[in-house]
Structures are given as structure tokens and as C-alpha cells.
Design a protein around this nucleic acid. Sequence first.
DNA 1: AGTTGTACTTAGTAGTTTTCCA
DNA 2: TGGAAAACTACTAAGTACAACT
Length: 672
Amino acid sequence: MLFNVFDVSIRDRSPAGIKSEPEEDNGFYPSPQHNKSSRQEYEYKPKKVKVEHDKKAKKRKHEYEEDEEDEGIKHKKKIKDKKGTDGKKVKKEEEEKWKWWEEERYTDGSKWRFLEHKGPVFAPPYEPLPDKVKFYYDGKPMKLSASAEEVATFFAKMLDHEYTTKDIFRKNFFKDWRKEMTSEEKSVITDLNKCDFSEMSEYFKAQSEARKQMSKEEKQKIKEENERLLQEYGFCIMDNHKERIGNFRIEPPGLFRGRGDHPKMGMLKRRIRPEDIIINCSKDSKHPKPPPGTKWKEVRHDNKVTWLASWTENIQGSIKYIMLNPSSRIKGEKDWQKYETARRLKKCVDRIRAQYREDWKSKEMRIRQRAVALYFIDKLALRAGNEKEEGETADTVGCCSLRVEHIKLYPKLDDQEYVVEFDFLGKDSIRYYNKIPVEKRVFKNLQLFLENKQPEDDLFDRLNTSILNKHLQELMDGLTAKVFRTYNASITLQQQLKELTSDDSIPAKILSYNRANRAVAILCNHQRAPPKTFEKSMQNLQNKIDEKQTQLSAARKQLKAAKADHKASHDDKSKKAVEVKRKAVQRIEEQLMKLQVQATDREENKQIALGTSKLNYLDPRISVAWYLLCTEDILYLRLLAVNYYLIRASFFVCLFVVFLYYDIMSNPPADK
DNA sequence: AGTTGTACTTAGTAGTTTTCCA
DNA sequence: TGGAAAACTACTAAGTACAACT
């Protein structure tokens, strides 16, 4: 099988909660049993190289590290040679490396035994504006109280943003702002339109400009201070290991920026105090200290959860958490488990598909609805679609919450039959628009579901996510609606890579990878706002291409002339000249091709976000396998750039060990 | 069966840093 | 060497899922 090329030596144990099932060669990700020999090779050769050519190996290592930096891979110490023949330094770093994926897991539902941390970092206190920066009401300067001024600065900082032109935003802001005013201020300031924040806004712009202009030393100082904070608060000890915390800073106060048409946009997100914070840590740990003169809301010791601290946010009343970084064991394990569940789905997806097709014919309406919804989730990678409280959030839907108004049925459209048109706002108010032909049975069912309904009625009125997931659970252990998204994303990447990858040049291969990735992003509807500078940068690129083309024809002309010259004289000098010109043409041709590929790639990527699928949906093992296959004997680290998201979890860091070994194998030191 | 609360994953944006290339 | 572009990080909103409760 194409992508079953190596063993990453990570699957000696199954992730927690996953029953180890016998592997079969199913063409979906590598399996441990098949590739023992290749694994040995990967592990052996570099060590040998290292022992025999210690100095050279050392030097090489440095080169790699630079290259790693180039590609943004910062886990240097984790890639160090296991043997540690380099001496103490390596040995020490070896101790830091932790192969958590080789460890036993808790089976009692607990997430840790020991947890110690220093608590969150609070937002810096408000610094009042200098007196010269004035706020004007109705044209007249007005000195605001500290709390009213602070909230005013939140608005002033957003003045250039579209948000501040929106009615709801302004209304919400003004209402909450007034709550922070003194009664005197309240009586004066009654109309937002009469408020002039422009001096404040200018002041902040000047400040950020000044920050950019700071000297190297000043910038360095800030960087060091940040680093210190990170070192002190950014890590915790969980079960004997130092782990990076994801968000150790408490969210600063500000104005709520909901996405899409959010009814609460502009509301004041209040400042979080220690009294709002619940600390979670183990009993026998050194408990974090609240800032002097303050208290925590609560300190608890719940090892059934993974968070270190939490607070309740005032806009939606939801709980926010401080949790570990994706590189942590706890997140990595979950990630791994997710992909293993997707692999299990692959084994029974045919059966499930057959089942829901059968269910389209059911006598029971609820079963038909369930079956059609599942078909959409599977075929279109729609999200489950939980119910949401009306009026509390933007009006968005997923599969189960689709309404009549979100689909249109066309018995015939152009040359296709039974076409369904979807048009709705999904997560983050991203529009999902798609026209797809469906099977006749699905179409007839949809017509049935639509009967006697108003546009705002639910399409699947007998279905919700909990019913659907309960059903899925019966079909496969651990199966939920979102597993289909993971599964279909990963399998699409794999299929597309197979289909698209040619034996072409490296840039063409990168383009293939990006195209495969793009197919996934399109499937999952991962969109982005086109970069602000898109048109301009596209034009720049086109100019470069034109220029290169001119260069090319000039170079070709020169080559021709040189050839003619050589034909006439037949001397060595002219022969050399022909060679030089020929090389020049070749070089320019390559450059031109690279530019053209780049242009295509960028154009196709205009509105598509690849990051989300890389980060959350694509099993990194597929990318690694592809990468190893198509680079064969020369390792282009550049290719790694196609998926730096691989480093997301340290589980996947081990994949880089494979890279490194592979690299050393392919570039044996020249000792003859 | 519906409702509520909690915990965790997935998502796009904005800002910063690094790299690339003339 | 500096400006554009790419890469990367931080941030936090917005989903999914599930258990406990009613």
C-alpha cells in the first residue's frame, strides 16, 4: 500500500480508552507489524554514522538544527541522538525527553496523579491616559473617571474596525459603558454619536508606532521579560514532567467581539480578579499563591479534569479554562486517540453506509431523518449541529439544526438530477454554499421532510445531535458525528496525495501536497478572509513572472547567437560560451516555473484556510509517509514546510526522529 | 425526553517574527 | 539592507459531546 511505508514505532500501546484491535493492511496509515525491518534501519544507521564519524556527525547535526529552525521546528532537544555519544550535554537533554506515548495510561478516568503550577498571570492594571489626551463630548473636553476612561479606551482602540460602525455593537457598548460611569458622567454622556474618541485613538496609534521604532536593546528587554514570565508561569508539573501551559495569561478586559451577527457584540468583557478564579491542582502540591491581598475563589483537587484554573466569563456565562499546550501528554494522547477512532471507523464505514441507505426506506420518520442527516454528515462533512439558545449567539447551524430555509431542491438543474442546494451559516458564521446531486431516495425524503413546513422550521424535526450520537454509539464504540469529519478529511488527503503526486520537481510536489490539503479544506469548508494585501501581492508576482519571461527569451536569443558563433568558429572558447548560455536558459526556466507554480498555488488558496485541517483533521502519519516516499534519496527539508503542524503534539515529535534518521541514511558522510 | 452545566476540541483573526529576494 | 511575504504564535470565540438532573 502506498502510504504504509514505515513504522513510526509509536503504536506499541494503544491510546487510553482505545481497545487494541488487530491491525490489518487497510491502506489507511501505517501499521506497526508490517515494517519491522525498515524501523530497524531507521534506528540503526544514524547511530552507526554517529559513532564512526563523530566530528562530522556533530557538524551535520548543527546543520540540521539550523534547517529545523528554518522550518520552524523548535523541538531540537527532542531530536537528539538517543545514544548520547556526544557527551554530557546530550545525556542531560536525553533526560528531558519523555516518550509519553510509550507509557501506561490511567484506566480509572483520572487524568493525572500530581499537578503543580503557579496559577495564572493577570492582565496588567489599567494605566490612565496622560492628561493631554482628551475625550470630547459634544465638542467639549471632558475628564473621565478611571473606570469610564478605561472602557472608553477599549472603544477608541477599535475605532478603525468595522465593528464600531455596527448598530448592535454601538448599542451594547454604550449600555455597558454607562454602567461604568459615575452618575455625573451618566447624566452628561447620553449619546454615543456625540462622543469623540479620536485623540485617544491617535494616542494609541502613536504608541504602537513608537513600539515599532524601539531600539534593538529595548525590544530585547521586553522579549526577555516575556521569556521570564513564560518560564515562571508558563509551565506546570504534571505527573513528574514539566509541561507547557497553553494559555497561562488571563484574558484582559475589553469589548466582546463575537463573530458574524452576534447579538452581544460590543458588550464589556469585565476584568477577571483572583476572586473569580478556581484553581485546580493536587493536594500534595505547592498551591499557587494569589496576588498579595487577594484570594482565589476556590482551590480544588479534581484529577478527573485536565484544567489548571477556570473562571466564568460574563458575556455568555460560560466557563473558561487554563489548560495545557498541545505538546503535552494529555493533549497528545487525545489527539492520537482521535485518529485511532477515525481508523476504526474506516473498518466499519461500509457497513454503516449500507445501514443508513437501508434506513432511507424506513417506515419511521425519525429513522429516515436520522439516515439522511447522517448521509450529509458523511458525504459533506457537515458538523453535527447542536441546538443553541436563540438570541444568545449568532444564528448559525449544523446538520441536525438545519432549517427548511437552508436548502433548496431542484429535481433538475442544468444537466443534473435531484440537486440539493445548501446555503447556511455554519460555525463562526462562515457561509456554507454547495449544490450537490443526491440519490433519488434522499431527494424524495427531503421533499417529504419539507412538507407543510415554514422556512424557519427545522428540516429534521425528529432529530437532534444527542439522538444521532446515541445511534452512532450503537454502530461503533466511540463513534460520534465529528468522527466522520476526521475520517473523511484524512482519507481524502490520502487519496488526493495518491492521485495528484507526480514525479515532478520539488515545487510541483509541494503544489500537489497543497492541492490535496486544499481538497480537504474545501470539504470541511475551512475559509479565510482573503489577505488584505492579496491583490497587490498577486500583481507583484505576475510582474515577476513577466519579467522572468522577458529574461528567458533574451537568454534564449543569446544561446542561439552563441550556438551560431560556435558553428562558425568551432573553437573551445565559443563552445564554453554555448554551455554557459545553455545553463543560464535552464536556470531561468526553472525560476520561471517556480514562480508560475507559486502563482497558481496562491490564487487557488485565496479564500481557503489550510491551517485548520492540518492542525485538527489530518493524521500526520499520512503526511509523513507521503513525504518519505516522494523524497526518496535527497532530503529536502523544505518539503517539511508542507506540514509543520506535525509538531503540534510531542507524540508527533517522534515522527521527526524518523525524519532525522532518514536524512542521515540518505546523506551518508563522504568517507572513501 | 428535555434541560443545564461542564469539559474539551475546533476555528478564524490579528499581530509578531523570520525569511526571502532584489 | 530593507521591504514584502511567509511563517508562526497568541488569542479567544464557537463549536461538540456527554453526564447529571428534572
